[in-house]
């Protein structure tokens, strides 16, 4: 006998459940199945290959490079964009002149689509006459081909990503800063705490729930944001800016090797799931929610 609650609950849950199944669970399961089969091509249907794709991956130098690049990319972007976001939020939360204008300026990169951003930066980075190379030229360091050399191309993309993300994360920090009751800060001041102590002992702990939220978003973005790779370098020169998601896109939609692309997706999914587990498992316990 179905209870009255269940009879009402199921129809209410159905819309969300249908969307989750169709757009999240079914694609995940289908990807897992595809990852264990060869790519069907014209006259050759898909065959069971088991772990074959994963064996290929272990010996695929481009995959290895994409993985390492992505780790560097994430390891720099996450702390840099979050640190910058916090600094900008503290700045525009203080009483400074032209506060609205500064806030807008910091937030502008977020409003622009990544492809437009990339096309602007392509000319910033242009050797010799590009803005950045001209500035470097003033101090005698000109003549750089920042996007065209393997040593600098990934860092050039990292700068764009940090610039793009920091403004977005700033908004969350700013909102959180304004939620902090002034009484707490006043009390700290009365107790004799200086600005550094107020930041470390009062503000940062109260920002921790926001920090976790931003951290999770930053991790996702570090693996998700590859639009500028497509627009600027397409993974070059010599795969020095190859990132996991861009490689998956290339394998799936340029090479049409859907089986291998599914296997790569499974690895990316695994990496992200692992990071999320660590974040929720370890960090969540240390955060004080009001």
């Amino acid at each position: 006998m179905i209870s009255r609650n269940a009879r009402i609950a199921w129809p209410l849950l159905a819309p969300a459940a249908v969307l989750l199944v169709v757009f999240t669970f079914y694609p995940t399961v289908a990807t897992l199945i595809d990852a264990l089969h060869s790519t069907p091509r014209g006259r050759r249907p898909a065959e069971w290959v088991g772990g074959g794709h994963f064996a290929t991956m272990a010996n695929d130098p481009i995959f290895r490079q994409a993985f390492v690049n992505n780790l560097i990319y994430a390891a720099v972007i996450i702390p840099a964009s979050m640190g910058l976001a916090l600094a900008m939020a503290l700045l525009v939360n203080a009483r400074i002149g032209g506060r609205a204008l500064v806030r807008l300026a910091f937030f502008t990169p977020t409003i622009l689509p990544m492809i437009a951003v990339a096309n602007i930066w392509m000319f910033f980075y242009a050797p010799d006459y590009g803005l950045i190379d001209q500035v470097l030229g003033l101090v005698g360091l000109g003549g750089n081909n920042l996007l065209g050399m393997p040593g600098t191309a990934l860092w050039a993309l990292i700068v764009i990503t940090v610039w793009k993300l920091a403004g977005f994360f700033m908004i969350f920090y700013l909102a959180a800063l304004q939620q902090i009751p002034p009484a707490l800060l006043e009390a700290a001041t009365l107790e004799g705490a200086g600005p550094a102590q107020r930041l470390r002992r009062v503000i940062l702990p109260l920002l921790m729930p926001t920090t976790l939220f931003i951290l999770i978003n930053a991790v996702i973005e570090a693996f998700r944001l590859v639009d500028h790779v497509i627009a600027l370098t397409r993974g070059g020169p010599n795969n020095s800016t190859q990132l996991l998601l861009h490689y998956i896109y290339q394998v799936a939609f340029s090479y049409w090797d859907t089986g291998y692309a599914a296997a790569l997706s499974v690895v990316l999914l695994g990496v992200l799931a692992l990071i999320a587990l660590i974040q929720f498992g370890v960090l969540d316990k240390r955060i004080h929610y009001r």
């Binding site: 392509m122 000319f123 242009a126 050797p127 010799d128 003549g143 081909n145 996007l147 065209g148 050399m149 070059g236 020169p237």
Partner: peptide, 10 residues
């Protein structure tokens, strides 16, 4: 020839 990889788009 300029060093490195010359970008087609520019």
């Amino acid at each position: 020839h300029p060093p490195g990889v010359l970008e087609w788009g520019t």
